[in-house]
């Protein structure tokens, strides 16, 4: 379960104050908001990539507010995928597993299973150079999920995709969400995407998060 409690962040003249929301275990939460409203800032703060002014963050009852990103065990899918440009796809997916203490064999089994689920088995020996937007997002998703994180944070994972890729990636994310019982925080500016994907929906407006029923 993700609990965000009175989170305040300031970035120069821009600030977010006392933001609170919760996503229960196994639920798919979507945070909506206009471009520039601070969605990515909140997501990066939850991942530990941005300093917060005040507030608390709990994952599965543990206070992670002061933990380093590595110690929070969150799977992060940034906008545009952001793959490691010098690593082969297989190494990108197993990288997190190895870091989390998997044996090489277990990491390989996990990578093969995820790549089968996501339809990227044919890419495993390739470098990321030349992959399509949809392929990049699927690899980024596999990389984030490989070490079975406690929470998956996705920053507009569908925004850069064409219609066909968006539909297939949407289905894959939903399929993996139910198969792996993931707790997800997905941020987007699209109402349609939120309606399609979210079990729980929130809207970020004027620095405040409002639940949408």
């Amino acid at each position: 379960m993700l609990v965000v409690d009175k989170l305040s962040i300031s970035l120069g003249s821009f600030s977010i104050k006392n933001v609170s929301f919760q996503i229960p275990n196994g639920k798919y939460g979507v945070l909506m908001g206009r471009s520039g409203s601070g969605k990515t800032t909140i997501l990066e703060s939850i991942c530990g990539l941005r300093k917060i002014d005040s507030g608390s963050l709990f994952i599965d009852g543990n206070d992670v507010t002061k933990l380093r990103p590595a110690d929070r065990h969150i799977g992060f899918v940034p906008q545009d995928g952001v793959l490691f440009s010098t690593m082969k796809i297989f190494d990108q997916i197993t990288f997190g597993c190895i870091l989390r203490g998997y044996t090489k064999n277990d990491a390989k089994i996990r990578a093969l299973q995820l790549s089968k689920d996501l339809g990227i088995e044919h890419l495993l020996d390739r470098n990321p150079y030349g992959l399509s937007g949809g392929e990049i997002q699927r690899v980024a998703l596999a990389r984030a999920l490989a070490s079975k994180p406690r929470l998956v944070c996705m920053d507009e994972p569908l925004s850069s995709l064409d219609e066909d890729s968006r539909e297939s990636v949407c289905k894959l994310i939903k399929h993996l969400h139910s198969k792996e019982k993931l707790t997800v925080l997905h941020i987007t500016h699209s109402h349609v995407e939120a309606e399609l994907m979210g079990d729980i929906k929130f809207k970020l407006s004027d620095g405040k998060v409002i639940p949408i029923t």
């Binding site: 991942c47 990103p69 590595a70 952001v82 870091l99």
Partner: peptide, 27 residues
């Protein structure tokens, strides 16, 4: 080099040093 690659590596379990040597330096 996109600094977000280091951010991703940090969330995957790297410390700063490992992210630097395994993600930044090869690039």
């Amino acid at each position: 080099i996109d600094s977000r690659q280091e951010d991703v590596a940090l969330t995957m379990g790297c410390n700063r040093s490992r992210a630097f040597w395994t993600v930044v330096i090869p690039q």
